[in-house]
Design a protein around this nucleic acid. Structure first.
Lengths: 142, 142
DNA sequence: GCTTGACCTCAAGTGAACTTGAAGTGGCAA
DNA sequence: TTGCCACTTCAAGTTCACTTGAGGTCAAGC
């Protein structure tokens, strides 16, 4: 009874069965057995899924998230890693704030064409020089 | 002389030739002619590339960036679109700030295991419930 | 006992944004 | 005139995180 059928995990976590299987294949979660063909999961899988969702939202790749899990055990989270990720987020946030302000200005700018707006051109220069982007790619939940 | 060889565009913009060809194929930029086989670009392509970089950094897809360009002309930027994107960025920023704070706390948290830290668990709950992520995917320059 | 249907496996597909590889071309220096 | 080699084309490959499809299985309900 303490084991959850995959359908229950899907229902409780909102994560599709295909994704659960995919995560299991990747070693991110593991099932404790079967009922016939059907996977059974320990209730702890829900916490693990939450941790995965958290990691993804923070910008970790699935592979990075996987490293957080000890071979067969509970999560072992490196505080340094968290701090590093926080710093990384800080930089991302700074860039996005600059972008947002620039966009906001451009949207309200009275110049006939954006190309004549100094603020927009500054933004453009920053983007071109890589000050804004150019540091790799990151997938973030929208 | 006012035309730039593709090699020059590569050098000045930092964008690889393969990407320039890819962008041309996508209709994001266009060459004005050839010198032998080699593409020649108008100097304006640099501004266009900057605009593309800007759009990408702001979270626009290439297709979205393409819409900014009129069929064969100069950029025509919809102010509403800019404002919308700024609002979108605002939401992203809010989420990232929450994430960063959570991570920062978790990194400094004195609880033996992160699983015993209330702040971390709150973050986990938020991630699981989709309050943090779960609203789609966005590729951002890192 | 038989049907049902949710689950299973395994392979392939998706989409975004490029990159890479093979084979070809042509301007330019020697 | 020849050779170099940076460019060209076109197709296919790459990465990430999944999803989809075809064909199969089995516990449960009738």
């Amino acid at each position: 009874m303490q084991y959850l059928d995959i359908a229950e995990v899907v229902q409780r976590s909102g994560v599709p069965a295909s994704t659960l299987r995919f995560y299991e294949e990747k070693g991110l979660i593991s099932s404790v057995g079967r009922h016939g063909l059907r996977r059974l999961f320990d209730a702890g899988v829900l916490e693990r899924l939450a941790l995965i969702a958290l990691g993804r939202a923070a910008g970790f790749s699935l592979d990075e998230v996987a490293k957080v899990f000890t071979p067969r055990g509970r999560p072992r989270i490196d505080r340094q890693m968290l701090a590093d990720k926080a710093t990384e987020l800080d930089n991302t946030i700074r860039r996005l704030v600059a972008m947002r302000d620039g966009l906001r200005h451009a949207a309200a700018c009275p110049a006939a064409s954006h190309m004549e707006c100094p603020t927009f051109r500054r933004l453009l220069g920053a983007a071109a020089s890589g000050a804004i982007g150019k540091r790799g790619k990151k997938t973030l939940a929208r």
